[in-house]
Amino acid sequence: MDSSEWDKLNEIVVECSRALFAACGVHVDYAGVATKDDAPFDTTLAVIGYGGAHLRGSVLLSAPTEVLRATHPSGGAASDDDLLDWAGELSNLLLGRIKNAIRRYGLVIEMSTPLMFSGLHLRISSVRSSNHAAHRFSCGEAHKLALGELLLQVRFEANVEPGARLTATSEEPPAGSPRGEGDVILF
């Protein structure tokens, strides 16, 4: 996978993140890649792993408590444990979107189940051999007014096998298969 393919893969991650937050009612603006490799987090983290023949790694979602509370289905009555669970479900939804998107480029992965953490000054250390990028998103104007300046972060980590390619396929999913999020198939 060359650098342009890695960039494309990260474009997919950013687009999937934006779409997920929008589906949860949070408009976000992309704020670029974090420059510090191990930036501290005073937030809730959820990490979910994936693996496939050509690609394996993890996706880490970092979200401020305020954002998790504002988007939780209970409408603000969520406990701390509920927010941890919600962060895990969001990471699951995000990786699901990424999985469905990269399948159209010939990359097939399997997903693990998420693990969630919360704490102060959490630091992240990467496996040196892996490719990684930490994408930052700021909440949109409407949410800034309500919640202040808040940053979400999606860290995409990948070990890419030699020969892995990101090539758009024109192959349509077989009849009777879902095409993506929200699709309903009755057998």
Partner: peptide, 8 residues
Amino acid sequence: KAWIVKPF
């Protein structure tokens, strides 16, 4: 009998 992709 059915398959729905989240988010629903």
